[in-house]
Nucleic acid binder design. Structure first.
Length: 289
DNA sequence: CACTTCCCCTGCAAGC
DNA sequence: TGCTTGCAGGGGAAGT
């Protein structure tokens, strides 16, 4: 799903539709673990509220509300946030991205867990998530949220020296450590693979085996792939779409992710896939040491 | 603590 | 065509 770049693109696009507008109604699906805060409570707390800012913390979106509370959103693997007037041609899943344009506006389906209606009667904001790995929570004013406070520094600001220090005490594989949101917030499976490729480090290397130079290279590579992906509108692999319904294009630039068996863009060696910590990892056995 | 395994849920592609 | 299996961008809980 959405990693830092996709969440950041969603934030930028959705902020103008969400910030400054008074929420009139909140429609939800039935209670499920998607709702960290029960639907009835969400409705009670959010009706009449107005967001004053929408920020991104790691892969979380956090709306500051005019009562001092906060609205926490996480897209999980398949979360989609979009406007009710978005081009709806491919909001309904898929890998089959050639699907013909769907006529008319998007109709909330059984996977559309949140629909915000506003007092001004303008476009609604919808949150859809087929797998329900996403999350929504209302945080009372001043409430502490461990999910947020546990996060490490933002991956866009990855610092090589700090990473080197963190790596030194970790015996796990570097791929696993990069996915640890407490070390660096925002990197997920795609960008961990892409960054390690650019840094020429194999995902299977133990973190504590990395040199200072390699750590600096990884930090630089992380910043680079994330910035470039944001500029490209994110990676649209299966479900991710921008809030206006358009695909991102960074997947066209991937060096290794989902390119198993295909030639390395640098040396033509077939890209290899291994499983690390239950997640697939892709790398070039020739370029990455 | 650090690390690993399992699990939450749905939809799609590939294989038979 | 239909069934089964494997796989998917995340992360928390519980185990060692």
């Amino acid at each position: 799903m959405p990693e830092l770049p996709e969440v950041e693109v969603v934030r930028r696009r959705i902020a103008p539709l969400f910030v400054g507008r008074t929420i009139e109604s909140v429609r939800t699906t039935r209670p499920s673990y998607f709702f960290l805060t029960p639907p009835v409570t969400l409705q009670r707390r959010l009706a009449g509220r107005r967001a004053t800012a929408l920020e991104r913390i790691g892969k979380y979106l956090v709306a500051e509300l005019d009562d001092g509370g906060r609205l926490l959103l996480h897209l999980g693997m398949t979360g989609q946030i979009f406007a009710s007037d978005a081009a709806s041609r491919r909001l309904l899943t898929g890998k089959r991205r050639r699907a013909p344009a769907q006529a008319g506006p998007f109709r909330p389906d059984r996977h559309t867990h949140l629909v915000f209606g506003f007092k001004d009667g303008g476009p609604r904001v919808l949150f859809r998530d087929a797998r329900k790995f996403g999350k929504v929570a209302y945080l009372e004013p001043g409430a502490d949220e461990p999910r947020l406070t546990k996060l490490g520094p933002d991956a866009l600001k990855a610092d090589g020296r700090a990473l080197y220090e963190a790596f030194r005490s970790r015996r796990a594989k570097i791929k696993t450590v990069l996915l640890d949101q407490g070390v660096l917030a925002g990197v997920g499976n795609i960008y961990a693979d892409e960054a390690l490729y650019l840094a020429r480090v194999r995902p299977t290397r133990r973190a504590d085996s990395l040199t200072r130079a390699e750590s600096l290279a990884i930090a630089r590579a992380v910043r680079r792939v994330l910035m470039r992906s944001i500029a490209a509108g994110g990676s649209s692999i299966s479900d991710y779409v921008q809030p206006d319904g358009q695909d991102g294009s960074y997947q066209e630039t991937h060096y290794v992710y989902a390119r198993t068996g295909e030639p390395c863009r640098r040396c033509k060696t077939p890209i290899r896939r291994v499983v690390i910590g239950q997640r697939s990892s892709h790398f070039c056995p020739s370029c990455q040491r």
